[in-house]
Amino acid sequence: MKVALFDFDGTLYPHETFETLREHLQSHPKYKKNYKRFVRYFAPTYFGYKLKLVPKIKMQRRALESYILSFKGYTKSDIDEFFSDVANSMSRELRIPLLEKIKQLKKDNYYVVLISGAFIPLLEALFKGVGFDYIVGSTVNYNKSGQVDSKVRFERVFAERKIEILKEHFRGEKIDWNNSQAYSDSISDLKMLELVGQPVAVTPDSALQSIAERNNWKIINHF
């Protein structure tokens, strides 16, 4: 089995996802009241990061955690409604050539995976009908009452964690990694790109650009 792995933030979607999410929360007609709660949760970590007391990775995890904690007490249907609204807006800016590439890979019998640190409800709403065989993202946890659970530690899917999830998912499967593909814009996904025989750097950051050029990987810089 051949697989095709797609990153989301900066790859399928050309902008910084979290900034888009922040703007939507701040301006959403129904849920904008949650924005102050988000700021209250996130501010200590953000200022710690600005003072170089908190690592960037920890700050990014806390940003997503604070975001979903701002919905504390809300139900799954509330979360799905909100992320569906966000997805409707974001869908206009997805990179169409890559969506077409996904369709072609499906026709060519690739097992196509979307793997991202973004929230799963957002990814599922955004790519409904696209045809991904498997979607990996950051989980929103709910308690027994069906409300957002603030007691379960939030896990951001990032870097090496992506590889762990992929290997667990494909455990027992015979994967033709040499003829598989992976698409990403960031050096943080280097291990994912190195996992396959056909890595593709999509509008890569400078570090990934250098590695891609050195290894003669395919680079897509224009859409």
Rank of each mutant, 00 (worst) to 15 (best):
M1K: 11
M1S: 04
L5A: 06
D7Y: 15
D7F: 14
F8N: 03
G10W: 12
G10C: 07
L12N: 01
Y13W: 02
Y13L: 09
E16M: 14
E16W: 15
F18Y: 09
T20G: 10
R22A: 10
H24G: 01
L25E: 03
Q26S: 12
S27L: 08
H28F: 01
H28E: 04
Y31E: 03
N34T: 04
Y35G: 02
Y35N: 07
T45R: 06
T45A: 06
Y46P: 05
Y46T: 07
F47A: 06
G48S: 11
G48E: 07
L53H: 09
P55M: 02
K58P: 06
M59S: 13
Q60F: 06
Q60D: 08
R62Q: 11
A63H: 14
L64R: 13
L64Q: 12
E65V: 12
Y67I: 06
I68W: 04
L69M: 13
S70H: 04
G73E: 02
Y74G: 06
K76D: 12
D78S: 08
I79S: 00
F82N: 05
F82G: 04
F83V: 00
D85Q: 03
S89E: 13
S89A: 07
M90G: 00
M90N: 01
S91K: 11
E93M: 09
L94S: 00
P97H: 11
Q104W: 08
K106P: 01
K106A: 02
K106I: 10
K107R: 14
D108L: 10
Y110R: 15
Y111P: 04
V113A: 14
L114T: 00
G117T: 03
G117I: 00
L123G: 04
E124L: 09
A125F: 12
L126Y: 06
V130P: 00
V130F: 05
G131E: 00
G131K: 04
G131H: 04
Y134N: 08
I135M: 12
N141V: 05
N141T: 07
N141L: 01
Y142P: 09
N143V: 09
G146E: 01
V148I: 02
V148G: 09
D149W: 04
S150W: 03
K151C: 05
V152E: 13
F158C: 06
A159T: 11
E160M: 10
I165F: 07
I165K: 12
L166T: 05
H169F: 07
F170P: 07
G172V: 04
D176Y: 15
N179D: 13
Y183P: 03
S184G: 13
I187Y: 06
L190H: 01
L190P: 00
L190Q: 03
L190N: 10
M192G: 13
E194K: 12
E194L: 15
E194R: 15
E194V: 09
G197S: 12
G197L: 04
Q198N: 15
P199V: 11
P199E: 14
P199F: 01
A201E: 11
V202T: 13
A207P: 02
A212G: 09
R214V: 02
N221D: 10
F223D: 15
